[in-house]
Design a binder for these strands. Sequence first.
DNA 1: CCAATAAGTGTTTTT
DNA 2: CACTTATTGG
Length: 736
Amino acid sequence: MSSTIPYERQLNPSQLEAVFYTDSPLLVLAGAGSGKTRVITYKIAYLINDCNVDPGNILAVTFTNKASNEMKERLESLLGKNVDIWVKTFHSAAARLLRIMGNHFQINSNFSIIDQQDQKALVRKIIKDLKIDPETYKPEKYVYLIERAKDRLLNADEAFSEDFSTDPVFYDIYRIYEDKLEKENLLDFGDLIFKLIKGLSQNDRALSSLKDRFRFILVDEFQDTNHAQYDLIKKLTMPSGRICVVGDDDQSIYGFRGARIENILSFSKDYKNAKIIKLEENYRSYQTILTASSRLIDNNPGRLGKKLYTKKGEGEKLQFYRASSDYNEAFYIAGQIDELTGYDKYTYSDIAVFYRMNAQSRIFESVFSRMRIPYTIIGSLRFYERAEIKDIISYIKLSLNPMDEISLRRIVNKPPRGIGQKTVDALIKVTIERGYPFYRIGSDLDIQPSRVALVQNFLDFFETLRDRVNNSSLPQLFKFLFDESGYLDWLLTENREEKARNLDELYNAVEEFSKNNPSSPVSEFIEEVSLNQAGSDGEESQNNRVHLITLHNAKGLEFPVVFMAGMEEGIFPHFLSRTMHKDLQEERRLCYVGMTRAMEKLYLTAAEERKLYGNSIKRGISNFIFELPQDLIILNMEEGVEYTSAKPRERSVWQDSQSYRYHQNRVSPGLNKVKRGPDKTGAEMPDLEVNCRIIHTKFGHGRVLSLERGVALIQFDNGTKIKLMLQYSPIVKETT
DNA sequence: CCAATAAGTGTTTTT
DNA sequence: CACTTATTGG
């Protein structure tokens, strides 16, 4: 091959086959760590470089914005030049297309995009307006149903005739919801795909021009596509068949959001001449990690089945640790991190702690900062979901789309302007009745005389803002908004300095964006913000920190050392995974995903008692632990803590788990006692004094009673008095 | 209309 | 626990 890219040197035979194969639709079944992103990237490069495909004719779909940025970067370094190619998420691609061609199918192209918070608020309002009880008719439930209906390409009427839900109220709510969005020119996430498909199926010309434009489509993380997304793909690639999808049925973890693992199975039915290539060589983990995780995932029925192998060798056994409390669990992990970074070759950034829910990150934050372990939280408090950020963004959304009631309500009285509920209601009523943007409404507005001037003030400000939106640079616009709206002053007088700091960060993001996209209009920034729920990057560049991250967010990443915390029945697998969408299997896949992120060392930890939402609850060890090959696990635990599975009451939850039966009352024989590594040497003795408060990894909080010759007598808060040799004890001084 | 306080509530994962 | 929503009194 006369190519400038050394494919043969950088890809194995199966990968090469996948990259070069273009004769028919291609499904690449790529196991964890088998280089699937690499395959997609090289394939795109191959198409451009060696097959003379115009980059503009390629559409590559990724699962997150982060992934798409990464892929773009890799691609550019591979081709050695900037390429104008669409590497986007389904949602951002659809949004962009709707902006461009929406006018062909009755979509006003300055629609704004609402997020889940807004959806929920809107549905709650609808429920209240219907005068039914939000207790029994929970907004979350209806948001969920509406989203699923949209995935299935059903509007309210269609859902009704298809008998989509057994709940009759749902159809009323959905209908009103649809109506509201339509009137206010708003689209939710599901609409982006849904409306595009609808438009395309009613407009042949638009469809064929799009097919002509995207002559080759590649989809990453195919197992996480929903019905609508797959439908869109089919619309665009049938009958041409120029499509390549890459996925792994074992890593499908977004079923709760409509992802259909079956899409992988359907692929070769839908595309009759599809070719399937499996990638089974893993380049990431040692064999032990692969063996253990395969055993776990084997418990899922109906898998396509892959046998991952590695040439990296056996590696170490997994470690399991059970602490008495969540607090001690965090301390144990902190202690291990100390050792790993002290004696071993590891740096902080080699290490990640995974957990099931964001709420679990708190305890690590407090323990790590006390133990001076640098950390960064990925994706938790999502930046663009913070109230102050949404407020500012809403001002701009409103100026771009003055019919946006949600945004208007949001900001009309922030900061306080003397415009209350009644006045806003009147304002909106007229807006909707007349169909005019509200700012054109003059004196015929039915409000208290004392409010007229106040409303006028607001409208005047808003006029100026609209002018700025059109005529100022992005940074200027935001500066204007911060200052002239009175928002920043309001925050400062209210003593919300942290929020003010967040606005600074927003300003940085704005500057960054306008530097990278000098010619982009404001609306593009807003769109990026609306679709990029993941939030403030930039933190990512902070070097050498332990990553704290949810299992869902961990997909696609890898770390030399991984801790999976909270391996408790009810936490992971989460107890709601049964009621909401009875999917223990998905939880198991999530566990599999977590485990296969680890390259060298994998620690699983659990607490006997854990505080969640205010009260402490005791839970058994996750059944996932018992599904692993026990001979590949080194067991450690705090004294007095047992290696047992869930309590009977909790266990009844898992009637549907094939495995629970085997583990009833299982108690491990001959455990290792708490094993402390060769840790703290004399060099690192804590500097304590009599009476100071300390924290001990194992025993918790206490106070120093006496000190002599490196031995401290400590009174622990739980009543026990113990003499400890400082040199060997996991003690730190309490710093609060 | 608004700020402060009380009450209550729901507890996963995210484009 | 931490957050949102409802109520009250100014």
